[in-house]
Amino acid sequence: MIEFHLDSRSGVSPYLQIVHQVRHALRLGLLREGDQLPTVKDVVARLAINPNTVLKAYRELEHTGLVAARPGVGTFVTGSSLADPALAAHGPLRRELRGWIVKARRAGLDEESIEALFRDAVRSARIEGVA
């Protein structure tokens, strides 16, 4: 059984923090197939949060197939793997990004400027996606 904790300063909503913690525990092998997640009652009694917050997190995890609810019993980890198929693509992308960062440094940008430029590029790409 795992235990959830909340960081009130992170700015991440409590429901997403729970989702992330389950995914994290699955990646690290702290949770395996057949393991039960804490009951909604246990989570709210520990964290003093609204029961719907926990239900929402569990529903989202269920929706992605990572857990399954057995009515009246609890919520259990399914066998589905969290191995991200896109993970294989990380290596080459990381190398390209590194090359880009080296170029940016040579052009005289400091770390803060590089981060600002990166964030801005991600943002404008997203806006193009929306528009």
Partner: peptide, 30 residues
């Protein structure tokens, strides 16, 4: 608040509670 939330998780109940501080209620209210 833990006791109150535990009760709401176990029973079908609506809750109306007041506070002059939002921070007190932020996590418990929907």
């Amino acid at each position: 608040l833990q006791a109150l939330m535990e009760f709401t998780a176990e029973h079908t109940v609506s809750v109306l509670l007041s506070s002059h501080l939002v921070a007190d209620l932020e996590r418990v209210c929907d």
